[in-house]
Amino acid sequence: MGAEREPERGAERVVVGDKRKLRLATASLAGCFGCHMSLLDIDERLFELVERVDFDRSPLTDIKHCGACDIGLIEGGICNAENVHVLREFRSHCKVLIAVGACAVNGGLPAQRNHLDLGQCLQEIYLTAPDIVGGKIPNDPELPLPLDKVHPIHEIVRIDYFIPGCPPSGDAIWKFLTDLLDGRTPRLGHPLLHFD
């Protein structure tokens, strides 16, 4: 059913014909790194990708904070304070931000804790579980505090595109990125589009 999609929330298009190499960054928030594995799963096409884009913060580099980028790929939802900071950093540095995978798109598996009370969870895990004596809820300021609920990333910042799947296949990610890089409206049809 030929669906003409408006990009989400007035997404910016990546400038086509720009001879400059585009910069791409990725991050994993509350996810399982499965989506990153999928990205690496594009196999030999990775070489083609490296031809076309420079990697900023990503599994392929050692960069801690992302700099000005054209494309940001985010895996995972928002479950703690640090996730929010990283996401916001990405949003402010990336022209186009893409949610990758079920967790980023709708909270995914981690969000299935949302009907539980966080206080009670912490209590049970650290204080009252049967094998615990003199337990203590970790309170090191270095540790990010968990949010009361897990959220998909589009509830925190503006997201331009979504690649659903748990994880999306390497083919889906490749199709999406090449559409984008070539200046087409990225589309996933059967069977690339799936939620599981």
């Binding site: 304070a81 009370d117 966080l118 206080g119 912490l122 209590q123 809820i137 970790p138 309170n139 505090l145 968990p146 949010l147 009361d148 609920k149």
Partner: peptide, 10 residues
């Protein structure tokens, strides 16, 4: 959204 965690961790 952090209040519950603040309370539990002090």
């Amino acid at each position: 959204a952090l209040a519950a965690a603040r309370q539990m961790t002090g």
